[in-house]
């Protein structure tokens, strides 16, 4: 019985990879354009903003919190950039949205830690507040960005497109922070058992705060990459991307219950989601089917997470008497 559980667990932990291979084969059979190298480059460029967002989301999910405000945060920082930072060089623009996003994350984190309100509620309220301010500032007009920013989309360094470069830098930094710094390991400890972490003398509140700031920072950077790709933002900009980011994390093995998963998985999850959308596009699928397929993937991801957690709990069950030997 235990061995059966372990096998099932192994399958569940690798379910996204199995799914990915199945999709590659299926889309490849349906269209010969799908498996082209250029198409994969496209997929990664398209996945870059969501991947960056999802990397930030991973920090918050790892401590068993959630941030629903990242999409709205993208919209507000982009609006402010378009309205009040016209004509600045792109590094200043990037810094502005990154700092703006981080500040919003700081507010989220402060309300969660100081007032003890559930992050789901705090960030849901924040979503409406930020979107409301952005719509008010922009009068819901379409806002355009200067060439200085949109040119970035056509720029490459050492042959690597700027979007992919940004994504690789964020990914590498996040990986090092999570795996090679004391803070990163403490994030995992807090996510596993906040009470035990407190008893072990860890600054649980400060760690929680930092994770929300990182999520906000990533929302700013991811938003900037998106802006450079699309050149203009309207009232629907950033709408529901938080769910894509959460889905990417969970598909990649991050547990909504905290303490488990990694940014490497998250990046894979983001690419998986974009692969599906790209494939549907290439085979000329009915546009109305896109949300259904995305929803099916999100549902699958959450169901897998639930099952995985349940099996892990069973495997790690506390025992009163020895299992073998008398």
């Amino acid at each position: 019985m235990k061995i059966g559980s372990r096998l099932l667990l192994l399958l569940l932990q690798n379910a996204p990879y199995v799914l990915f291979v199945v999709l590659l084969v299926a889309f490849g059979l349906m269209s010969d354009r799908f498996l082209a190298v250029a198409n994969f480059r496209n997929i990664i460029i398209q996945a870059a903003p969501i991947a960056i967002l999802a990397i930030g989301m991973t920090f918050v999910l790892l401590i068993a919190h959630i941030d629903l405000s990242v999409g709205a945060s993208m919209y507000l920082t982009a609006s402010v950039l378009a309205l009040y930072f016209t004509g600045v060089p792109w590094p200043v623009g990037l810094a502005a949205v990154a700092v703006g996003g981080a500040m919003i994350g700081l507010v989220n984190g402060l309300v969660v830690t100081r007032l003890g309100v559930a992050s789901f509620i705090v960030t849901l309220a924040m979503l409406f507040i930020l979107r409301g301010i952005a719509m008010w500032l922009s009068n819901t007009r379409m806002l355009m960005f200067p060439d200085a920013i949109t040119d970035l989309n056509r720029t490459a360094l050492l042959g690597i497109p700027s979007a992919i470069l940004a994504f690789l830098v964020v990914f590498a930094l996040a990986w090092v922070v999570l795996h090679q710094t004391p803070f990163g390991r403490q994030v995992y400890a807090v996510g596993e058992d906040p009470e035990a972490a407190r008893k072990a003398g860890l600054p649980v509140e400060r760690i929680t705060l930092a994770c929300f700031v990182i999520a906000g920072l990533c929302a700013g950077i991811g938003g900037f990459v998106t802006i450079s790709q699309i050149g203009a933002v309207g009232p629907k900009y950033g709408d529901q991307v938080e769910f894509a980011a959460i889905a990417a994390s969970v598909l990649g093995g991050v547990s909504l219950f905290g303490g488990r998963g990694s940014v490497a998985g998250t990046v894979f999850g983001a690419i998986l989601i974009k692969t599906v959308q790209n494939g549907l596009n290439i085979i000329n699928a009915d546009p109305y089917i896109y949300p259904l397929v995305t929803a099916a993937i999100i549902f699958l991801a959450v169901a897998i997470d639930g099952l995985r957690t349940r099996i892990l709990e069973r495997l790690e069950q506390r025992t009163i008497r020895p299992l073998s030997e008398a």
């Binding site: 004391p182 390991r185 995992y188 400890a189 996510g191 596993e192 972490a197 072990a200």
Partner: peptide, 18 residues
Amino acid sequence: LNLFPNLTIEENLFIDGF
């Protein structure tokens, strides 16, 4: 016990002061 099962032995030993 006050250990974190998702971390390694060495990480558990030094979690409060790496």
